[in-house]
């Protein structure tokens, strides 16, 4: 009797320890980024583009990378939403819920989710080469769209699946078509979840470096058209860390802090939004 209790106590102690270790590591990562990044962060970092000799430690900032990342992730999220929302509505409204097509699509989206982002990058580059495109904002947007499409679709699917079937039937009963039901009832009911999904996808898109490594290029200028190469935050961090100069490396830490803050804000925002918008849904 005593041994059983003792074993339970020991295992439970181990569990608490490992839980503390995992969440402690999260805290450690955030603390490291803040402690290292904050001293190097100043207004010039955020408000200026790199001046001559920036990567040798001269003046300038990373506004090009911040805006480049926002353009890129924003464009990709918009495109993925335009492609993904019809897919999800098709799965949940047009196709029957337990149909084979729906199951297969969910499966292949899950598998696509698992494909490493570097493979997306290489695939995007093949497509761009065969289309005669150079590394550009557009190339980056297209590649990141493919990367976040499965995330966006599956996250939206999870919420739209939860829309009660009675609601659909009520809409059909007053004579609405499936399209009208999908756009005016289902989307409105699941709006909170859709917005959360969009922000999750945006966060993933802005943080990914491997997929834009070959496709978006890098530039010290802020891109003014889709055909120009665009700098991105993750790559800016990577390149700055790769230089042998202490001051430039410091800036990499500051850039990492900026990226982390963007991600944190996105994450918090998605939670707030989902809370604000669920007030209008029918339970």
């Amino acid at each position: 009797m005593n041994r059983r209790k003792l074993e339970e106590k020991c295992v439970k102690g181990l569990m608490v320890l490992s839980t503390l270790l995992i969440f402690g590591t999260l805290a450690l990562i955030l603390a490291t980024v803040v402690i290292k990044g904050l001293p190097a962060l100043d207004w010039a970092m955020i408000s200026q583009i790199p001046k001559g000799g920036f990567y040798l430690g001269k003046e300038g900032g990373i506004l090009n990378a911040i805006l480049g990342s926002l353009y890129l992730a924003g464009g990709a999220t918009l495109l993925a939403l335009i492609l993904g929302l019809p897919v999800v509505l098709y799965l949940n409204v047009f196709a029957r819920k337990d149909s084979r097509i729906a199951a297969f699509t969910r499966f292949s989206l899950d598998v696509l989710w698992g494909v490493p982002s570097i493979v997306f990058g290489a695939f995007g580059f093949i497509i761009m080469l065969s289309a005669g495109m150079r590394a550009s904002l557009l190339g980056g947007i297209l590649t990141v769209t493919l990367l976040i499409l499965p995330i966006l679709c599956r996250a939206m699917d999870e919420v739209i699946r939860m829309v009660p079937p009675d609601l659909l039937e009520a809409s059909y009963a007053v004579g609405a078509t499936r399209l009208q039901t999908a756009l005016k009832v289902v989307v409105r009911q699941a709006l909170a979840g859709i917005l959360t999904a969009v922000l999750i996808a945006f966060g993933r898109g802005i943080g990914d470096a491997a997929s834009v490594l070959f496709t978006a290029g890098f530039s010290d200028q802020i891109p003014t058209s889709l055909n120009q190469p665009a700098a991105t935050l993750p790559l800016a961090i990577f390149f700055q860390l790769g230089t042998p100069f202490h001051q430039v490396q410091q800036r990499a830490y500051a850039s990492a802090l900026i990226l982390t803050v963007v991600i944190l804000v996105t994450s918090v925002l998605s939670r707030l939004l989902s809370r604000t918008f669920t007030r209008h849904t029918i339970q």
Partner: peptide
Amino acid sequence: LIDLLAGIPSVVYGVWGIL
């Protein structure tokens, strides 16, 4: 918190790794 951990970009993990 777990979602947050999953959302941190891999470059930031890399920076943490180096530091």
